[in-house]
Design a protein around this nucleic acid. Structure first.
Length: 631
RNA sequence: CGGGGAGUGGCUCAGCCUGGUAGAGCACCUGGUUCGGGACCAGGGGGUCGGAGGUUCAAAUCCUCUCUCCCCGACCA
């Protein structure tokens, strides 16, 4: 019997003895250079259920390949099990995150199950709506599953932090998070349970927060670099409540759901919720007659395009009028109340709901119903405009006064002789000039950027890409520390509220993005730093003792060199083994085949398909050289 | 929540329209021949046809209800 059979891993019965015995610590399963013979990873003994075909319900590449490669299996909509390979890759990603985070902060492990009271203290019990998983315990008390851990972290801070001397603090954890997504999709891209690294910083002042923020910015770059991702850092919306700065780390891929605006020339990049652009000048129409608003008959012309065509003008000279209702809370009674909101945009522009929400200090809005429109405009939809609105609200110190809120996009500021609806069926108005014919409550940036518009920094054309968000950092400000009552004494013995930052990384999104970024028709490849194994050693025929002993020898050499190696010792035809090796994401393959008689084996790079011949004794050295750039 | 689609062996699917008691390919098990890109031959195991109710002598197939999954939209610090 050849020696490789003798050295097989112990059977389960032996294993039990080993695990209960004193050698427990030597039987670890991680990538350890001191691994013993027992821990050699042999494909024939592992559970790596590869599939020839993708499941019918998989659409995006990462979903298809992660299932086919035996990384994951679906348990329910948006809930996945990670099998052996998936978990290994996962743990490597987490390892990198942990190493880099440990350089700037301290790891905690917090509960996933939170009491209602905590989320009521921050106000998010009601704000989060259906996205929050809620449950009751046996006593009927309300609990929820954490989506993020601002509340828990801030709770610790408010109970423990007393003095400026204890600041700054950066606390992080790596934990399952739960979100009851209305529509989970695309495999691991949008799920209901996911692993997240989340960290929180507590500083005495804004300058301190800047430092904590920058530390995260730098750590995130190191993390994503080490994971081998090609990513972008873009400006993001910091939220309506007190936030001042925010960046998203994104990977561009058609499977993504975020829209990213970036400049082709300079380094300007922002997500759609935040992006702005410089607009090319538009020529205003010449005034007609006396230049005052003038009714024109426009029978049945309801859409912007209809009217523009009918009157022979560009949509850029038209005002788009949107009728909305804002949900407010009455400051006196504390009861919810609805308020009319009219938004004006240039005819060819689209409303950006995130920007609108910012302009409304975070309040939610919805389109008006037909009867509400009638009541406010005394006109059917399709012919709405700002003129004739009664009781338009004024702004005092940034606060809206009583009346209808009229928000006008900045692209309309300074324009003249525009066309708007006349608030009368089948009529529009010419010569409408903002500031003269009507006074807005406020001008604001409310529109979405279109591809091809000019970069706000340098004027070069902007492009729009879809992307996956893999990390997000932002300055929270005082939102949680204030509402939950975290206070410390400063240098002067005065009580102050610490300023916070919050920072997240989606662990499965790193894996997903990597697969999206690196795949072909046969499978995908990962950076050696996050691949479940760095090298797979593939003897083409396991019944050939010469091949098999050589393969085993090489695998041992590689392990001794500290390389994470998988030995494909299955009694399968070479084609099957090659196909599987191509599929499962391992970046290098050592093929032990017919060239062994000449004393060489092949080293195949999965990404490029480059083949290098190496002499059997020099394989380890060669592989180390290949792996070095990634490590 | 609105619209669309799909649930039949582990995977991909056929059968349903026109009811007669379930099939293919792959995977799996045994034996044999093979062995550098998902082999071949022979034999074999495996299915409450998503669930419940109804119609019928008889239901994967027709009817009603329901559950689940996928896609588009709404939604999404």
């Amino acid at each position: 019997m050849s020696n490789w059979v003798i050295e097989k891993r112990p059977r389960l019965s032996q294993l039990t003895t080993l695990l209960s015995g004193p050698r427990l610590e030597s039987f670890t399963m991680t990538n350890s250079p001191t691994r013993n013979e027992f821990s050699m990873h042999r494909w024939s003994e592992l559970f790596i259920p590869t599939l020839r075909e993708a499941p019918a319900d998989a659409e995006v590449a990462s979903h298809k390949f992660l299932v086919r490669a035996g990384y994951i299996r679906q348990l329910a909509a948006g809930i996945y099990s990670y099998l052996f390979l998936g978990n290994r890759s996962f743990n490597k990603i987490i390892g990198i995150v942990r190493e880099e985070m440990d350089k700037i902060g301290q790891e905690f492990y917090l509960p996933a199950l939170h009491p209602r009271e905590l989320w009521e203290a921050s106000g998010r019990w009601s704000v989060m709506g259906d996205a929050l998983f809620r449950l009751k315990d046996r006593k009927g008390a309300d609990l929820c599953l954490g989506m993020t851990e601002e509340e828990v972290m801030t709770d610790i801070a408010r109970k423990e932090l007393r003095s400026y001397k204890q600041l700054p603090q950066i606390w992080y954890q790596i934990q399952s998070k739960f979100r009851d997504e209305p529509r989970p999709k695309a495999g691991l891209l949008r799920v209901r349970q996911f692993m997240m690294k989340d960290s929180y910083s507590f500083d005495i002042d804004a300058a301190g927060l800047d430092v904590s923020y920058q530390k995260h910015y730098d750590a995130y770059r190191r993390i994503f670099d080490r994971c081998g991702l090609k990513y972008m850092i873009v400006e993001a919306l910091s939220g309506a409540m007190g936030g001042s700065e925010s960046h998203e780390f994104v990977v561009c891929t058609p499977a993504g759901e975020d829209l990213i605006v970036s400049c082709e020339k300079c380094n300007y990049a922002a997500n759609m919720e935040k992006a702005t652009s410089r607009l090319a000048a538009v020529e205003d129409l010449a005034p007609e007659r006396d230049g005052k608003p003038l009714e024109v008959h426009t029978p049945g012309q309801k859409t912007i395009e209809d009217v523009a065509r009918f009157l022979g003008v560009s949509p850029k000279n038209k005002i788009k009028t949107l009728a909305l209702i804002v949900n407010e809370v009455d400051t006196k009674t504390g009861k919810p109340k609805a308020r009319d909101l009219v938004v004006l945009l240039r005819g060819d522009h689209q409303l950006n709901e995130a920007k609108l929400s910012t302009a409304l200090a975070g309040k939610e809005s919805r389109p008006m119903q037909e009867d509400e429109i009638k009541q406010v405009f005394h006109s059917p939809a399709g012919f709405l405009g700002p003129l004739g609105l009664s009781n338009v609200a004024k702004t005092k110190n940034g606060v809206f006064g009583e009346g209808v809120i009229l928000l006008v996009d900045k692209a309309l500021e300074g324009r003249a002789n525009l066309i708007s609806g006349a608030n009368k069926a089948d009529y529009h108005l010419k010569n409408v000039t903002p500031g003269r014919d009507f006074e807005p409550t406020e001008y604001a940036d409310l529109r979405s950027v279109n591809g091809g518009e000019e970069c706000p920094n340098c004027g070069a054309p902007l492009r729009i890409d879809t992307a996956v968000e893999i990390g997000h950092i932002f300055k929270l400000g005082y939102k949680y520390s204030e509402s939950m009552g975290a206070r410390v004494l400063d240098r002067n013995g005065k009580e102050v509220t610490p300023i916070m930052g919050s920072y997240g990384i989606g662990i499965e999104r790193i894996l997903t993005a990597a697969v999206e970024q690196n795949n072909d028709e046969n499978g995908f490849w990962l950076s050696p730093t996050v691949a479940p194994f760095e090298i797979v050693v593939t003897p083409t025929n396991v019944k050939d003792e010469k091949l098999m002993s050589t393969a085993l020898k090489i695998a041992r050499q590689l392990e001794k060199a500290g390389i994470d190696v998988l030995l494909d010792d299955r009694d399968e035809r070479p084609g099957v083994k090659f196909k599987d090796a191509d599929l499962v994401g391992i970046p290098f393959r050592v093929t032990v085949g017919k060239k062994v008689t000449e004393g060489t084996v092949e080293i195949v790079q999965r990404s490029t398909r480059e083949i290098h011949d190496a002499s059997i004794d020099a394989v380890a050295e060669y592989c180390q050289k290949l792996l070095r750039p990634a490590r």
